[in-house]
Design a protein around this nucleic acid. Structure first.
Lengths: 353, 353
DNA sequence: TAGAGCCTGGACAACGTTGTCAGATGCGGG
DNA sequence: CCCGCATCTGACAACGTTGTCCAGGCTCTA
């Protein structure tokens, strides 16, 4: 059979007004097998009460017609969709890939599918996505929030949509949260630099309205204060972490009247940009970055980082989600996962002045 | 109000047999607003023919009850789910993140949501996922195939599920395919090494049942043949690309009776492992890798690669998918996107012997 | 052989939404 | 003052599935 005409048929199906291109339904299967509707349902769902012969007749009809159960109709009847939603900032970010995969694995273990969407760090888009997921009646939501006001979720929570926030806390709403210890991690990282003799240490981070960014800044300040080092304004730079701004910030810190001898980078994107600036300037400035980055061990020097376990974040959140759905969790909690200092060289460089 | 009790209420809702924790329906909204069911539907969908006063009454009821339209029911009635499925190998792989994100952006532009799943390179799991997505009546599928027989999709295609395969061709079925030019890319990369004086060039790639792996091997052979270089068996290694095997393969190639002076790495994971082996052995062997890797420019030497545009693959596939859904595409096509050689140093090293 | 009980199969309603169609309301013109 | 028309509203069926409940036929026992 020429493939073109087959495809043209399919197209005609689709345009002919009949929905789903005339997908067969249980009714069709029942008619063909010469049995009742409910019997087909029983076979499809593996319910007992069907003789092997009947079952076989039904199965043959299913195969012949290419029947596949319509889960939309099923959901309408049963109430559970066996799917969960994941809203994150950017699926292309190497930090979220493993997180997303971890959520998916847990979902799979519970027989659920994963719908995900990227908010692009835009609160409106986050809300739009979350509500679209709720309209599809996902059983639960894992949200990496972009906004800081999630009251719009109130009716959904009341309606029983399980919800876990990850990486950043929920805003103005009472819900489960799974975080990395940004504050502690940043403090450890900066303390590490101080322990190696640095006093003029720069901090380049994300917009302070992002919780993790604020916490990391707080960790930086705490470490400096612990060491009795007064922080100069010019050592800190907070804002969007696109390469241009970070580049400018790094260059200013490194060239001002009291140039820093070390930099603490607030996230993986910042770390990469700073490495690039240092490489261009051929300067061996000490650097510790928040978030591990691929190949960090192969650079010269290796990049010392505060690593979060993205997969563990996702796994923990998803497991909590399903425990909510089990009904075995009642009270929202805030869970903080530890970070880990990985020394590879860049954080152990001595001050250069 | 104490949060704990609120949450407990919600739990009780969920366990009380009432589905969705008693989510309000249009019926409830209609009753509260004192209007008919269809009027609520009209307001919810922004259809004309409702006076502003009525609309406002309905809207107030919606807000008061926290009503959200049930898209499952809507789908059942309308036939389109406005969602597409993406099945790939591993969401955590840095190659698939951008691809997935690109698909999502196109979907978003068409008002569709993205459901995705990882096949983990397992054909059975791929099929399971794809069929689960079909049961949910996704409008279309973007599939990075793990298996090589997709006849199980026949009924779905006939039923009008738009389908595009990406990165690897479909097996035994007639469908749209979007690929990178693996053959040409590999040939160019190997030719590049040959142009820099290499003759003993190793190839480490994935299992040959994976189409891209086979194509890249073919490109390698072609380049060698073009240059009149007979290939020795010990220079080639094909199999799963986990670090252990790749490491062994690389070590063997580099130490045998006729050690290679250059390596062509068949994918990003192989490239990284080879870099690691070379770094450990402190050897400056020439290397060209298929797939770009992050920070490749910052390594010493920079890593020369054959880059594919993952985002372009995803975008092209998704756009084709929606054109299928428009009905403006009839005949399946095979689209090949070009690859790009990026020279950064490692591929330009001279032979060391 | 008749009755009790079990097993299989089917008719029907319901899930929440939207399309169809007809009814109600209000307004202007004859 | 009444009719016709336009505008707004609502009753009802249908989408494809599953849960409930009942009917009929069978087997087993007394």
């Amino acid at each position: 059979m020429p493939d073109t005409s087959r495809r043209a048929d399919r197209l005609a199906d689709r345009l002919s007004g009949s929905r789903y291109g005339n997908r067969p339904t249980m009714k069709d299967v029942a008619a063909r097998a010469g049995v009742g509707l409910k019997t087909v349902s029983r076979v499809v769902n593996g319910e007992p009460g069907v003789t092997p012969e009947t079952e076989q007749r039904v199965q043959e009809a299913i195969d012949a017609l290419g029947f596949r159960r319509n889960d939309s109709a099923r959901v309408l009847r049963k109430g559970r969709t066996a799917s969960i939603g994941l809203v994150l900032e950017d699926l292309a970010d190497p930090f979220y890939g493993p997180l997303s995969r971890a959520v998916e694995e847990v979902a799979r273990a519970h027989g659920a599918l994963l719908i995900n969407g990227s908010s692009a760090e835009d609160p409106d888009r986050e809300q739009e996505l979350v509500l679209a997921l709720c309209a599809r009646r996902v059983d639960g939501l894992v949200v990496i929030p972009a906004g800081d006001d999630h009251r719009y979720l109130e009716p959904e929570l009341r309606a029983g949509v399980a919800t876990v926030f990850v990486d950043r806390p929920a805003g103005k709403i009472d819900a489960d949260v799974v975080l990395s210890d940004s504050y502690g991690g940043a403090r450890d990282g900066v303390a590490h630099l101080i322990a190696h003799g640095h006093r003029r240490i720069g901090f380049i981070g994300d917009m302070p309205r992002i919780h993790t960014a604020a916490e990391r800044l707080r960790g930086y300040r705490a470490a400096m204060e612990d060491a009795g080092i007064p922080v100069e304004e010019t050592w800190m730079s907070l804002g969007v972490t696109d390469p241009e701004r970070v580049r400018r910030a790094a260059e200013e810190m490194l060239s001002g009247p009291s140039p820093v001898t070390a930099v603490f980078a607030g996230n993986n994107r910042v770390t990469v940009t700073v490495i690039r600036v240092l490489a261009e300037q051929s300067r061996r400035i000490a650097l510790v970055g928040f978030d591990d980055i691929e190949l960090a061990d192969l650079l010269q020097p290796g990049v010392t980082v505060i690593a979060q376990d993205a997969a563990a974040l996702g796994r923990t959140a998803a497991e909590r989600l399903f425990r909510q759905l089990d009904g075995s969790l009642v009270v929202p909690e805030r869970i903080e996962l530890p970070t880990r200092l990985i020394t590879r060289g860049s954080g152990e460089l001595p001050p250069t002045d």
